[in-house]
Structure formats: structure tokens, C-alpha cells
Design a protein around this nucleic acid. Structure first.
Lengths: 191, 191
DNA sequence: AGAAAAAATTACCCTATGGTAAAGTTTTTT
DNA sequence: AAAAAACTTTACCATAGGGTAATTTTTTCT
């Protein structure tokens, strides 16, 4: 468990710049959990029950659209994830979280996460959490509006090395906003 | 000034669900200001100096890309806006805020906004602010990934009635992620 | 008001991506 | 190990949107 603390602390430092008490409080309420590939951590249409820290593995955030799914986000080792919109609005939401490989997480109930938010130290945690989530989303929007799918693919591969090996092409394609066929073409061209 | 209070309060209620003390504190530090069309409220590469509440008019958030600009966001009457990424990171940022028509704002220095954030009431304000900004961005990302430019255009027109009359087509086009020529075609088709 | 500048529209052709289908590959199931 | 299912690649054609340029309309400047 000491190992988690080290890694969790590192994630906090990179992500939040929150005071040390905040992550201690957070860590104290975490429960370890293992999810196999394709296991659904949060189902579309439900309210989010947990806030996750990924120790090892990866999780995809999906939106089901007609018969297809669109991948809105990936989260890998050392990152946090959840259907944050559901947490914030306290309502059911259509995002679906799925393990993309065997994944070890530490999760905290949203109930506890919210209770944390009532304390002043948690207030800061919640704020930092929302702020960094916003910055990430803003970057994604900028990429979608200003970069070609080829650029976006190359940057994704840089940001998450080996992502092509760990995550199905179809998920990467939908994340980029293109079809698997188009991604396949891109890959062939610049292989 | 009573008028502002009413409208500002309304904006808070719609946006933040923050306690009444938060917006009173906010309103107390605001300074009224009028910007003419095309006036730059925040220049690319600078740090954000103000946090704005728009009483009447509109502001565009732009990112300059090569010789062009891309519109990332619009803000109209009763909304807040700023280069939020710069405020959060406390660093210079490339977004540029421009008045799209004659616009009356009430602005607060980021310095004061941050000081507010140190009080517990401001902590909540900052958190709510980040949270609602995140939700907005998430929605934008979803639209970009799941909807056609035609759908996005129609929804933009619904969300901000008369937007086609108040804002230049080229800005709307870049917000949608297409060229003015393509937007022109769309408009002709469904006029 | 008239001239100049900027923006919007239209047109033409071109390219990136979509849709469908089929072939090849990998993974899962039995 | 064989069969089935799922995924990836390839191919072919269709289409939305881009690039350039010319024309018209609107806005700005003098």
C-alpha cells in the first residue's frame, strides 16, 4: 500500500498542486479494485458511483451514438478518471467507462468524494480537480479545431507511448473523430 | 447599478449555484466598462488581467493559427468570460478575447478574483466556475465528435438566437470547424 | 456621398474521410 | 485444435469540406 501512496502522491503533484492533507484524506478513503478488459466501470445512463485512480492499466470514456461509440478520453497509469459530468451535476449521464485492458484502480465512492468536498481541504481538491479537467478539455477542443487527424494521431502516440499496442484501433479512431478505415490509411502512409 | 446586481445575480443562479455571499463579494469588486466592436479585451500571448461579466453584447474567444483565427467560444449577454486557462495556470496564454459588437461588461481584476479565491466563499466560487467551464467544454467536445457541421450550426442558432445577425459568419464558421465558404453553402441549402 | 476595404457568396476542382464490402488477421470460444 | 467472432486492412466509389479565385454585398473610412 505504501507503493500506492507514492504513486498517488506523484499523480496529485502532477495534477492538482493541492496541499498534502488533501491527498492524504483522499488516499484514506480509497479501495483497491481490479477490472478485466472490457469490464464496464460505469454504465451509460447511470449516475457515477466512484472516482477512480488508475494504478496500472487504462480506461476509456465512451459516448454511445446510434450503433457506435465515440471515445472521448483515455486514462492511463497514474491518472484519475470518472464520469465527471455526472459527479458535478449529480445526475445520471450517458458516458460509459470501460477498462481497455486488465486494470488496477483505487476507487473512492462519489459520496465520500462529495463529503470530502464539504471540508475546506476537500474544497480545494474539488476545485483543482475541476480546473485541471477544464484545461484538459480545452486542449482537446483546440486540437479538434486546429489540427488534422494525422497530427492528432501523432500527438496522441507521443503523449501515451505504446497506445497503439494497448488500445484497439477503433477506439483510437473514434477518439480522433475518424473511422477505423481512415486511421488504418493514416498508419500505412506514415509507417 | 441595481440593475447590474439583478442581472449578475441571475447569471450566478443559472451558472454557479453558489451561495449568495459569493456573488455579493464578486459584484463588490466589479468595474463597468464599454468595449467597441473588434476591441481586444485580452491579447494573445499575454496573461489574463480581468474576469468579465457581459451585461450586453458579445465576446469571442479566439486562437490564432497561422494566418487565421479559430473561434473557440462565444459569450453573450449574462455570461462570464475570460482566458480561463491563463487564470488557472497563472501564465501567459495564446487565447485572444475580442468584442464582437459594442459590449458592456463588468470586469474584476484577476488579482481580486484570486484574492477572492483565498476566502472560503471564493473557494466555492472558483470551484463552481471551473466546474461549469468544464461541463461546457465537455459538451463542445461531444458536439465536435458526434455531430455534423450542419447540426452544430443549427444548435448554435438555437442556443444563441440571432447569432447569425450579431456575429460575423467567418467567426461562426471557425467555431464550427469549417470555412466561411462551407458555412455559406450550408446556409443556402437550409434557408 | 463616394471610395476603399472587408466580408459573404458562388463556382470550380481537389482531397480527406465516409460507407460498404471483402479479405486477411487476431482473439475468443467451444 | 478447430470454429467462430471480432478486429484490421484494403479497395472502390461517393461526398463533405478545403483551396483558390471571381463576383456581389456590406461595412468602414475619408
Amino acid at each position: 500500500m505504501q507503493n500506492l501512496s507514492t504513486q498517488l502522491k506523484k499523480a496529485f503533484d502532477a495534477y492538482f498542486e493541492a496541499p498534502i492533507e488533501a491527498w492524504e484524506e483522499f488516499a484514506a478513503h480509497c479501495e483497491p479494485m481490479i477490472h478485466r478488459k472490457d469490464e464496464v466501470l460505469k454504465k451509460q445512463g447511470n449516475s457515477e458511483k466512484y472516482f477512480y485512480f488508475i494504478e496500472k492499466g487504462s480506461v476509456g470514456v465512451f459516448l454511445w451514438k446510434e450503433n457506435n461509440f465515440v471515445c472521448l478520453d483515455f486514462a492511463f497509469d497514474g491518472q484519475f478518471c470518472c464520469d465527471y459530468m455526472s459527479v458535478l451535476t449529480e445526475e445520471p449521464n450517458d458516458l460509459e467507462l470501460v477498462a481497455l485492458e486488465t486494470t488496477k484502480v483505487h476507487r473512492m465512492t462519489v459520496e465520500n468524494f462529495r463529503k470530502l468536498g464539504d471540508k475546506s481541504i476537500g474544497q480545494i481538491l474539488m476545485r483543482k480537480s475541476a480546473e485541471s479537467s477544464f484545461v484538459d478539455k480545452q486542449k482537446q477542443q483546440i486540437d479538434l479545431l486546429t489540427k488534422s487527424s494525422e497530427e492528432r494521431y501523432r500527438e496522441l502516440c507521443q503523449r501515451f507511448p505504446k497506445v497503439e499496442l494497448r488500445v484497439a484501433q477503433k477506439h483510437i479512431a473514434s477518439y480522433l473523430g475518424i473511422t477505423p478505415q481512415s486511421l488504418s490509411r493514416l498508419r500505412r502512409k506514415h509507417a
